[in-house]
Amino acid sequence: MSARKTHPPTQESTTRPRPPSKVRSTVWLLVSALIVLFAIWQVNADWSRFANIFTEAPRYIALMGQGVIENPFTMPWSEYWTKSLALMIESLQMAWIGTLIGAVLSFPVSFLAASNTAPRVVVIVTRQVLNIIRAVPEIVLALVFMIPIFGLGPLAGAMALGVGSVGTLGKLSSEAIEGIDRGPLEALDAAGASKLQQLRWAVVPQVLPEIVAFWLYRFEINIRAGAILGIVGAGGIGSILDQLFNAREWGRIGLTLVVIIVVTVIVDQISAKVRQRIIAGPGAPAAAKQVRERVAV
């Protein structure tokens, strides 16, 4: 005790740094909590119905499971499976063509939306147009514009997916373009190449793998979007899904969902593999092999 008394100056030097103010983060947290509470209070959802998840849902799920495990080679189940699979394939076709349309439309647009390849004003305008396209749900696009023009069916769906894809694809691609190494551009400028030639030989080779990977990524998203467009009559498996739920044919609902899940998961896996391959580039596996061989030697 006496020792402590003999060292009064230490007290001053041991003042601890004060922690930085937490006011900002606390305020943010409170505001967010208030927003959520307000939403819960206002939404007039019947929360008691949540109990149905434990009472009703298991019964329906069991019914769905029965449909899945029925012998698929007997009528009418074989026909149900074939029908669902055929419609899912139609959804995939819509997604593929939609992605293709989106790719073709967004490729030139992305150069207009990149600040290193287009003038400022053009970039700002193009970006806002892309943002507006992104804001429109595909299903609304199908309902409002594509079905009136192309009629009911998968063509309208593919068109809706195509136009809908331009928003994200244009944005992602333009960001890839903005991320390029400027060196080759400068070199081509110094070699007397025109603006268009500079894009073709300095920008495109640098960004094409990324952009193609974005196309595949968008294809994966479009599979999901294409699976529901049928609800408004724009083709694909969505059309039958809506009818089945209205008719409460749980067995068929079950097998249709299984078809959607299995096909989507498989196509996702393939697409992801191809994307990795494209990003790594054809030279990369060879180079990696060379390294491995060198290590082995």
Partner: peptide, 25 residues
């Protein structure tokens, strides 16, 4: 002709394509 400190080649394409950009004019 111009040569740069950081070479300024397009790495993802072949040597030939890089050299041919000198013929673009």
């Amino acid at each position: 002709g111009m040569i740069f400190q950081s070479f300024n080649l397009v790495n993802r394409t072949t040597v030939m394509n890089n050299v041919l950009t000198g013929r673009l004019h």
